[in-house]
Each structure stands twice: as structure tokens, then as C-alpha cells.
Design a protein around this nucleic acid. Structure first.
Ligand code: FES
Ligand code: FES
Lengths: 179, 179
DNA sequence: ATAACGCGGACTATATTAGTCCGCGTTATG
DNA sequence: CATAACGCGGACTAATATAGTCCGCGTTAT
């Protein structure tokens, strides 16, 4: 399995849609169905983003999520850490202390500080994290928006507005969007 | 679980011991017991290192493994790839093509090239890999050897020599090293 | 012939990921 | 004031990956 999981992909894609709809909250269910992903799974991701101060939630009908900060102030690293929980790239088993010549009792010089191999991994992890920290949501959104034709933006707005409206007036949701 | 697994830790530690014993092959069993790790598990790692051209094997009693190249020519990245099999840091589910407004049939502009989010992850992965590629076994061995007192090196040599000798002359291996 | 070696495949246990399901308290609408 | 959709949280399940075991094969020095 990969280190950066599907939850991160879902979360980041959602945050981009939130960034493109400032002011009006979007529900996690709508975001899920809009993107063709599991609503129940997405519902487990958003509370993590909220606890990390990345989105803010409003409860009740008409509730949903808003970006808690400017998209330019939210780095990819923050999002990854919020969702994955800062798990390490490598977890050292401290095998250096189990060397047979120590006879179960490793001397302090052997286990002092970080193992040289572990140190290499920590540097690699830092390189990865620095790279992720250097990108914000606006950086991604830039690339993202460049490819889409202008009509797409309107279609999206319409789709989301229909959903929001159907919450108050009980509009029929019987389009063929779900299999 | 971490992305860089225990196999990598075991493999790299073994390679350092191989680097410190040039000329005389060490068996995977001896390396395992010397370091207090599972012999059967280590036996699954070495063939991968051999296929990658990092170590060379000799069969039969008195057989074992030797470094196939100079330690300075073996990068940490090579070892990681040999053992882990070049698994990606992030695997994209291509959710961008599942957007509801596409109605099951995403237009080509939407799925062309790499998703902006995926691209960020690929850059992070490259940063990590570049970092790992910049370190060779000698770099690690340097840090490693600096901490140990000179007597340790002798103890290790003695332990390994005893093992090698006991293969030809049937020396009693009934010390209390194993529980 | 034996014993230790490397090699490979089949197997098992445990942990993680992805995803589901349910019930709770909250809030706009009618 | 009842309803329906919301966010929140916990318990649950299925599939997959990791860590580790076990066994049998062909090879080689004594
Ligand atoms: S002891 Fe864990 S990397 Fe060396
Ligand atoms: S579709 Fe996979 S990261 Fe965007």
C-alpha cells in the first residue's frame, strides 16, 4: 500500500472545490456524490480537517463546510498530516541494540542518538515533507483551473446550486447520476 | 504502517556488516543471529539484493554473501528499491474523472496528463528518492564506525570467525545467545 | 554421507486501509 | 412542532500488505 492514502486524495480534491466556492458551505455528502466517491468514507475525513483548523463546519440542514483560511495559507503538508496523522516514513526497530556481542545488554554508546541508517531515512522524510509544505491549495488550483473550459465552471456551479436548493424546497432528486 | 519497512532496516544493517568484512562471505543465518533478527525473514530479503546486483551469493557450506560492488557505489535508494520493489508513495485513484457533471463519460481534457494533486505527490516522492540516492553505504558506515570503541570491532570479528569456523569443525554452539 | 548453504514457494498471523452502518444532537423549513 | 438534512462519533467488516514461518530442492566443503 502506498504511504499517502486515498483519504488524502479525496480530501485535497474536496478542498479545491471548497476553494472554488467561497462563502457557501458545501456538505460532505454533496461533495462525495459530486465526485463519485463514498459519502460515508468522506464523512470520516472532514472532522479531521476541521480539528486541524483547515475547514470550519456549520451544523443543521443547510450546514456544511467552508475553508477556514485562505487557500494560499493551506499547505499540502498540513492536509496530509491532518488526514494521515503524521505517521513516519520509516519506523526504526532499533535492531542495533540486539547485536549478539552485547549479550542482551547493549552499551550506551551503541544506542545513543539516532542510528545512521535511521538518520538517512529521516532526512529523506524531511525532503518529502519540505516538498509538500512548499505547495498550497492555490498552487494546485492554478494548474487545475487552467485545463477546464469556461463552460465547465458554470456546469459545476449549477450542479451544486441544484443540490443546495433541493434541501429547502423538496425538489425531486431522481436524475440518473447514481447507478 | 510505514512506507519503508522493516526489511529495509534489516537489509541495510546487513550490508554494513558485509562492507566491514570484505573478502569473506557471511551467511544470512549468521547475519540474522548476530543481529538478533529472524533468520527465515532475512533469508527472503537477500535474494532480492542479489537480483539487484548489490550482493553476490556463493552456494554450499562455507557459502554466503559478499558485496557485489564497492560500498561507495551502492546507494540507499538502490537498496530500498531492491527490497521494496519501487512502490509509489501515493497511488492516484483518478477520481477527477468521476465528477458527476461528466455523466460517466469524462471529456479528454479532464483526464489528460497528470492530475495537479498527483503531480505534487510525485514531486514529493522525487525529493525523497533524490535524498536517498545521495547517500551510499560508505556515508552511513562512516557515522556508524565513529561511535564504536576499537575493542568492539575485535569482538565482532571474533564472533563471526567463531561462526565460520564452527561450520567446518563441528564446534559446539551451545552458548546462551538464543532464549 | 553429512551438514550447512542459497533458493523458492506455500503458508499464517497481525495490522492497516477503505468502507459501511447506526444513533446522537443541531438547525432551517413548512 | 415535526421533519429532513446536517455534522459527529463509534462499532463494525472486507480486503490487502507486512512480518514471519516452514518445508523441500539442488549445491558444495569436509
Ligand atoms: S537500528 Fe533502526 S535503522 Fe539502525
Ligand atoms: S485524480 Fe488522483 S490526485 Fe487528482
Amino acid at each position: 500500500m502506498a504511504h499517502l492514502t486515498a483519504g488524502v486524495e479525496y480530501g485535497l480534491h474536496c478542498l479545491l472545490w471548497l476553494a472554488s466556492s467561497p462563502g457557501t458551505p458545501l456538505s460532505s455528502r454533496d461533495l462525495a456524490e459530486f465526485q463519485g466517491i463514498s459519502p460515508s468514507f468522506l464523512a470520516k475525513i472532514f472532522p479531521k480537517l476541521e480539528k486541524a483548523g483547515i475547514v470550519s463546519a456549520s451544523e443543521g440542514i443547510k450546514g456544511g463546510y467552508l475553508l477556514a483560511r485562505q487557500p494560499g495559507d493551506i499547505t499540502v503538508l498540513e492536509v496530509v498530516d491532518a488526514i494521515e496523522g503524521r505517521k513516519p516514513l520509516f519506523d526504526c526497530q532499533e535492531i542495533r541494540g540486539r547485536c549478539a556481542v552485547f549479550r542482551e545488554r547493549p552499551p550506551s554508546w551503541a544506542t545513543k542518538g539516532v542510528c545512521a541508517i535511521h538518520a538517512v531515512m529521516l532526512r529523506a522524510e524531511k525532503a518529502m515533507r519540505d516538498s509538500l509544505a512548499s505547495q498550497t491549495l492555490v498552487d494546485i488550483a492554478g494548474d487545475f483551473g487552467r485545463k477546464a473550459p469556461p463552460e465547465f465552471s458554470d456546469d459545476v456551479r449549477k450542479w451544486l446550486a441544484d443540490r443546495t436548493k433541493s434541501r429547502t424546497r423538496n425538489g425531486a432528486i431522481e436524475d440518473g447520476a447514481l447507478s
